[in-house]
Design a protein around this nucleic acid. Sequence first.
DNA 1: CGTCTTCTGGAATGATCGTTCCAGACACAA
DNA 2: TTGTGTCTGGAACGATCATTCCAGAAGACG
Lengths: 221, 221
Amino acid sequence: MSAEPVTGDPGAAPRTERQQLGDQSRRRILDAAGQLMAERGYAGTSISAVSARSGLPASSIYWHFRSKEGLLAAVIEDGALQWFAGLPNPAELDAPPTERLAQMLVHVGEALEDRPEFLRLLLLISLERPDESAASLETVRRVRGYARAGLRAAIEAELAARRIPADDATLDTLARFSLAVADAVFIAAEIEPGDTDIPALFRVLAATLPAAAEAATRRRA
Amino acid sequence: MSAEPVTGDPGAAPRTERQQLGDQSRRRILDAAGQLMAERGYAGTSISAVSARSGLPASSIYWHFRSKEGLLAAVIEDGALQWFAGLPNPAELDAPPTERLAQMLVHVGEALEDRPEFLRLLLLISLERPDESAASLETVRRVRGYARAGLRAAIEAELAARRIPADDATLDTLARFSLAVADAVFIAAEIEPGDTDIPALFRVLAATLPAAAEAATRRRA
DNA sequence: CGTCTTCTGGAATGATCGTTCCAGACACAA
DNA sequence: TTGTGTCTGGAACGATCATTCCAGAAGACG
């Protein structure tokens, strides 16, 4: 039986020289596909284009990934891993408590500027493939769930430091709002590059959240 | 010579019965193409799919529109026209000055819920087709320019009513921020429908802008 | 009536799509 | 050495792609 390398993770098995070469090919395919899909969407990216950019024949793509759909899932999974790995650990920030949120948002903004491909891919996939049964949408949701949880924790800490009370529902809404703003700022920058000041928009967000929390709490009372 | 109906506007010429039938076909094609492109993106929408949904043969599509690209441009143009026409005229709102902005945002939110197809198409096209020379991107920018101008006027009026000073640059940033939030809320609703409370997020935005304006002005001083 | 314009129907084009097949190249274990 | 699993190269498949062509239906106009 052949070795089904079509699975997502290479596992922890010892790798022969030949297999390591295959791993490199797999990576080149992932990178090429990630770039292309982020540029032109899923439907707009052909296997032959991935083949051309990666320098590997179509048969290699199909040996490493089950299908075009499987390739997409792997690209999303891999992209998320890399993107989050590039963010600094929020627990290690040495800023005073009332500035941690702002600092974290700055880091997110920088990541958006430095490595926009992944978020672009995520948004494109979310909008382009609303098939109920698409497994990739599930991956997208999971990735966004992580991001939302991180934002929520940062917001909670910030509000606590400022002695602003906030119940769970309010925190949830604020985290969703912040994630939405991150999407939005990114999109604005995509549509009108050079005309969009990403840090400025993130500063607006940071300046804004405490007041929003107070307003929400007041409304709830 | 044949009559080149491939142009966007039917003009003001008197229409014969045969021509009116053609106009109906044109509309059916535009509607079908708009739906499909909003669902699956430009690359994901085939002429044969448009033909199937509209009930007209491919040759009719090519008679009414120069090419697939031309069809896209017409769809965007037409969609923008319809979408803005569905919004109430801000000058006619009868709310007190300090609530006009909130009311306007509510209307925008409702429009997003009622007729999401157009914004979905706009975002999809913006992200999917980053070709420098794409004429459709120009249309997208123009449409967003209108929206931004409307938001800016509403924000300016709101701040004046609240006696919060704001210079041009601040107003511009706030308008961009608000437009971005509108995008974002829409996207969040697309990705996690039923899990996203659109009015709540728009209330956060409305509650947020005066504080943001004050913060921005303070920073600039 | 016949001619013109407008629009539709359907077949056809070559290109490209996703996917498969299979012969080999190459590193390992025996 | 002789397999055996791992991966690549390239040709090939039918399906579908955007687009074109042309015959003809049918109202308009004389």
